[in-house]
Design a protein around this nucleic acid. Structure first.
Lengths: 319, 319
DNA sequence: CACAATCGCGAGCATTTGCCCATAGCCTGA
DNA sequence: TCAGGCTATGGGCAAATGCTCGCGATTGTG
């Protein structure tokens, strides 16, 4: 049964998949798996945990937990949402992304299963990245996946949260990265960038997206924009003073969900936020700090769909 | 949306789902779950295992295991299949249905996700039943699910392997059970049965199915037909002597996959086997005993798709 | 109202699992 | 060819898990 294949990597993941299968699907103990694959118990354990850490095993929970359904209903009614998912929270790890990542992957999967061509536009960020990791491998050459913003720092280095490339390679779709930094150095540079044919085309695709999935960033000293180095602490403080409430694909908006007219936004290179009326625009966010940003975005109808967790949903509804 | 609250069953499953989520998705230990849900460690353990046994947690393995892919390719080429899935085997539990059930559920799900109306025709049997249990809850009122055969014994009692009703309630589709026994008492009774308007309509739906999923039964003393009491040991032996090789929705066929002209078949009430050219007809079967039956069915093109496991696939290819 | 059957609960214990560590094989580069 | 480092392996152990048993509560029944 245990065959030695040639490329060590493939064989190893193959064995990991097999071990994971025997463990999770067939319900063997690791001892039994070890015997069946002809390795030691410890190796079997390593294979199983490799299968988990490589995300070969995907766990999905199939029960409408009443509390989550109630919260979904309330949010949907209050903000008129086209897509809404509320997943359980783990009170001790309030920022856990796995849950919303799985839910978001399910939303993506639904669109990907369509036989007709669909355009899917993505933002960036940890949540988006986690979501893409939850997608199964598929073969969907009919779709196009397009990034709404660049993933470069202004010095040309890449941020690690690039979702588009990873997603495209997982599902086998054509993809359109956004070949620009996140923010331009100044308005002049931005004009030049936006003049490029490729950029225009990518932006145009974004406006036609059948599904848009974006992270929602808060404003503050722990904000992604600040932590990932797109903004200095001083700029951030200035924005806070001007009443900034949140940020989507780097576009900073106020508590009413209006994109602000500020120095920073004038340098943002991302595609303009989509107008309501086209495909669903789904925000992906959990966390205490993000409630204000999410509420503002919903309020201003910058997003018309939301994937979040119980704790955040409760916070959104409270006032 | 939230159905009858405060029924202990709902609450209990709800808690089980939550516990399962905290365990499998959030990665808590059962001790932590116990604290968070305010129950004892043992209760938490029970909730988690309830979530598993009630099939609330679905595990999916997302890696193309090389050996399975090789076998799929070989089978597909040899028999010209429209659908083929080979899942790993557990050598010590060769008849384990979970694996093919998951794979078959994925095939069904793909069809169910279509926004256009689809007709799905099902057989019966343990494998079909296990498959349906693996389906997630969905809301697909656009589809129709139709049974290709009755699930009644001739005395009117029901067999427990009814897949259609269960599936329809899980996915919220219209369904058409087959309101007849599996076999009629005699040809005259059969004529009367088939004269009924409802039966005609159901059979007509079967011929238009976009996807047909059936179990493949072997012939022999352990055959489903025999074990489930549709045939006496003597009838079975007579069929074996006449060269019967297998059975699909109770239609008995020979080693070349030709439906036999025999006394038993003249009493079978099931919808006639679909002709090639319409939607895929997928057989679902594992087990040493079934290899002959599967090979004959593939050979005679009674089915043009197959979901099986490694061990069975190997046996099918070994001349 | 009393009794019996059933169910859920927690204690205790055997099994299983995860992880650290020492070791042995293997590759790299001089 | 050999030293040095790196990775995979299996032993051992502590933590986590699953299971059985006896108890008490709850429900159904005569």
């Amino acid at each position: 049964m245990s065959q030695s294949r040639f490329t060590p990597e493939t064989t190893r993941l193959d064995d990991a998949a097999r071990a994971g299968w025997l463990y999770y699907v067939a319900g063997n103990t690791q001892d039994e798996i070890a015997k069946k694959l002809g390795v030691s118990r410890q190796s079997a354990q390593r294979l199983v945990s490799l299968a988990v850490s490589e995300k070969l095993v995907k766990v999905r929970l199939d029960h409408p937990i009443a509390r989550c359904m109630d919260l979904s209903g309330a949010l949907s009614e209050r903000f008129g949402l086209r897509v809404i998912e509320v997943v359980p929270s783990d009170p001790s790890v309030p920022e856990l992304l796995t849950g919303i990542a799985i839910a978001a992957a399910a939303v993506l999967e639904k669109t990907l299963k369509s036989p007709e061509e669909k355009i899917i536009a993505l933002g960036t960020g940890r949540a988006l990245r986690a979501c893409v990791e939850q997608l199964p491998r598929m073969d969907c050459p009919q779709h196009r996946i397009v990034s709404r913003l660049g993933n470069m720092m202004s010095d040309g280095s890449a941020t690690p949260y690039n979702a588009v490339i990873r997603m495209a390679e997982r599902v086998g779709a054509r993809h359109y990265p956004y070949p620009l930094p996140v923010v331009a150095r100044d308005e002049e540079e931005l004009r030049v960038m936006h003049g490029q044919e490729a950029v225009r085309h990518t932006m145009e695709l974004c406006t036609r997206a059948d599904l848009t999935l974006v992270g929602v960033g808060q404003i503050g000293l722990n904000a992604p924009l600040r932590v990932d180095g797109f903004m200095t602490a001083e700029e951030m403080e200035a924005l806070m003073a001007e009443g900034a409430a949140g940020e989507i694909t780097s576009w900073v908006y106020d508590a009413d969900g209006r994109v602000m007219d500020c120095a920073f936004n004038r340098r943002v290179a991302s595609a303009p936020l989509p107008v309501p009326g086209s495909g669903p625009v789904v925000g992906l966010a959990v966390g205490k700090d993000k409630a204000g940003a999410i509420r503002a975005a919903l309020h201003g109808r910058l997003i018309n769909g939301l994937i979040t967790d119980e704790a955040t949903a409760e916070r959104l509804l409270k006032q």
